[in-house]
Nucleic acid binder design. Structure first.
Length: 647
RNA sequence: GCCUUUUUAGCUCAGCUGGUAGAGCGAUUCAUUCGUAAUGAAUAGGUCUGGGGUUCGAGUCCCCAAAAAGGCUCCA
């Protein structure tokens, strides 16, 4: 007998070699039906795999990530089986479960798999699933595995096996399909009731651009048809929040083929919103003793040669601009730091001057691959809410903490709760990729980790993700359809000061090297606003939104009164429009609701006689009537309480 | 840049197997002067993204280009 410990701490004895499925059955037939995988001593196992020793277990259902994972992993195998039937000779790369569903990378040889082929593959999968084939786990030696896949001609699998450590290798089979796989899997395929293949994409083998591009098919499956319908509905809903769609509807920004791809153009309403966001940060930065600066959009190429950026990015960048007479080379600035270093060097600095904090909403230009451009989140020209802090080495941590304060103020005030923080460190096995001494790197990495600990920020530490000049702390937020984007960033840089020989005079009357911190709370105004649009679905907070109030006269007879009201509100710095169209009130309400105007004032005979306005809050409906003065105060109070969060 | 897909009126989209362009919304004009999410009518709007080809004939088929979408790669 073996002792099985359950998540609630209870312990039961079972015969040696019992399986997860049998354990589940012993608890309830319902659980046995819902069970998808089992966690045994922290490892996820098949339900059918015998447990031979005492173990702590957790039975995973659809409600557990581990359960879904097994479900989708098996779905990937099911798809592979279907593909093998439909495309004889197809070769397989990898086919994992992902956050939402699964994919399989395949090499169909001469054949091309198109989106229009997906329904046929889905149908084949459904047919195979209905047969309820059992998944069989086999252990074989590396040599046998190699032989098996070599015979089959599956060169990708052979490569994968070659990279595996010697020892037992596991295979999973169902029907005629056998795959190299660690598992775990569902006991059989019949639980897969609803299947949707979502898209076809090219994916480089092992993520390497230089290697062959395989065909990746993304799909998702569910145990119930209804769950698939709900998921597809959710996707539809998410698409409605897409910043590209809302940006167009609300006339915030545009793109023009003539101006160029990836070059966003800010329309008046978008500019209005963006400037308000910039101003709020400027005010905060004033409080934190930043100094605003302005620098040109281009700079001598030599700046970037010295900084080392040109060597690294030069050939993939916008190419230099040449002066017609002298043949000098200038680059569109890809970042602001170099210019800010020059400001630092403008005059000798004393330890008493530090820290110096130069801030600029600096527009930078970077050549991004055309396939990567995406709305406002990935563009070729964008404005960083950039600042560079020059400080003494002993001030780094303190400055880092202060920057974190600014980021938290912004994120809290704008209700960005679901951000992830990531500390990016150097890849310890690949140090030549980076500029700078070991000692400096270690100092910088330590400062970041300590600062996060001090702030109680749970940050994920990732090796090898650092910029080439220093480690960084990034804040990532997800967009409407779950893609992660980096917003705020804080990066320590010991290298630029070195390369540009920045100095300050210390207490000891000696020259010392300052440390530089790059930081941008929003990251890029474009990307931040894109994410903000998706988070709010275009319903911006009152302080920020381009139009706060729309006055809606019941009929044209009351247009004059409406303009009168608008004038009074404008005098009180409230952003107001009048809907003077010859339309019925229901229509005006509908249109202004869709424009996400926070407040509507309905004015007709009743209001004119009593000198008041009928207030309607967006999305909420009639909120009673009041005088213009009372309404203005309501607006001011609401804005004031929102602005208070920035203090 | 690569793979797959898309591009028709200001916007959202129809247009089957090639026979010469359509709707809704919006805009304009007129009527109506209206009480909390769409008043009615009329009118104007298109070298069907651009270029080449096949064909008696191309929005529709083929090739090239541009832009966009979903991925891959990249991201100072």
């Amino acid at each position: 007998m073996i002792k099985i410990t359950f998540p609630d701490g209870s312990v039961k004895e079972f015969p040696k070699g019992i399986t997860g499925l049998e354990i589940a059955e012993s608890i309830s037939s319902r659980l046995a039906q819902d069970a998808l995988s089992i966690t045994v001593n922290g490892q996820i196992w098949d339900l059918t795999r015998p447990i031979e020793t005492d173990a702590a277990v957790k039975i995973n259902t659809w409600d557990d990530e581990e359960g879904k994972h097994a479900f989708w992993h098996t779905s990937a195998h099911l798809m592979a089986e279907a593909l093998q039937e439909l495309y004889p000779g197809i070769k397989f790369g990898i086919g994992p479960a992902i956050e939402n569903g699964f994919y399989y990378d395949v090499d169909p040889g001469e054949a091309v798999i198109r989106e229009s082929d997906l329904p046929a593959i889905e149908a084949k999968m459904a047919e195979l699933a209905a047969q309820g084939e059992k998944l069989k786990r086999t252990d074989i030696s590396k040599a046998d595995a190699l032989k098996k896949f070599q015979t089959k001609g599956d060169e990708y699998k052979v490569e994968l096996i070659n990279d595996l450590q010697d020892g037992t290798i596991t295979l999973y089979s169902q029907g005629n399909f056998t795959d190299l796989c660690r598992g775990p899997h569902l006991p059989n395929t019949e639980k897969i009731k609803a299947i949707k293949l979502l898209s076809v994409a090219g994916a480089y083998w092992r993520g390497d651009e230089k290697r062959k591009q395989l065909t990746r098919i993304y799909g998702i499956t569910f145990p119930k048809k209804k769950m698939l319908d709900e998921y597809l509905l959710l996707l539809e809903e998410a698409k409605k929040r897409d910043h590209r769609k809302i940006g167009k509807e609300l006339e915030l920004f545009m793109f023009s083929d003539m101006v160029g791809k990836g070059l966003p153009i800010w329309l008046p309403r978008g500019t209005d919103l963006r400037l308000r966001l910039e101003n709020v940060l400027k005010t905060i930065q004033q409080r934190f003793e930043y100094q605003q600066v302005i620098t040109p959009h281009i700079g001598n190429k030599q700046l970037y040669v010295t900084s080392g950026h040109h060597a690294k990015y030069g050939k993939d960048s916008f190419q230099p601009i040449h002066t017609p007479e002298e043949g000098e080379e200038y680059l569109l600035k890809p970042m602001n730091c170099r210019h800010h270093c020059e400001i630092y060097k403008f005059k000798p600095r004393s330890y008493k001057d530090l820290p110096l904090r130069f801030a600029e909403f600096g527009t930078v230009y970077r050549y991004e691959q055309s396939g990567e451009l995406h709305g406002l989140t990935r563009v070729r020209s964008f404005t960083q809410d950039d600042a560079h802090i020059f400080c003494r080495p002993d001030q780094v941590k303190d400055e880092f903490l202060k920057v974190m304060d600014i980021i938290f103020i912004i994120f809290n005030a704008l209700d960005f709760k679901n951000f992830e923080a990531q500390i990016s460190l150097r890849d310890p096995n690949n140090k030549e990729k980076y500029i700078g001494t070991d000692e400096n790197w270690e100092k910088a990495e330590k400062a970041i980790i300590e600062a996060c600990e001090e702030k109680g920020l749970k940050a994920k530490i990732v090796q090898g993700e650092a910029a080439f000049y220093g480690p960084k702390l990034d804040f990532m937020v997800k967009d409407a359809i779950g893609r992660k984007w980096q917003l705020g960033t804080i990066q320590v840089d010991y290298n630029l000061p070195e390369r540009f020989e920045l100095e300050y005079t210390g207490e000891d009357n000696q020259k010392h090297r300052p440390v530089m911190i790059h930081r941008a709370p929003f990251g890029s105004m474009e990307r931040f606003i894109a994410v903000l649009i998706e988070h709010t679905a275009g319903k911006f907070p009152l302080w920020l939104t381009p139009d706060q109030v729309a006055v809606l006269p019941i009929s044209e007879k009351f247009n004059d009164y409406a303009f009168d009201i608008a004038k009074k509100l404008k005098e009180k710095s409230i952003r107001v429009t009048v809907d003077e169209r010859n339309e019925k009130i229901g229509r005006k309400i509908r249109d202004n609701e869709l424009k996400r105007i926070p407040y509507m004032l309905i004015v007709g005979e009743k209001e004119m006689e009593t000198s008041c306005v009928s207030v309607r809050r967006q999305g909420e409906g009639d909120a009673g009537s009041m005088s213009v003065e009372e309404f203005a105060e309501l607006i001011h109070n609401e804005v004031a309480s929102q602005m208070k969060q920035f203090n």
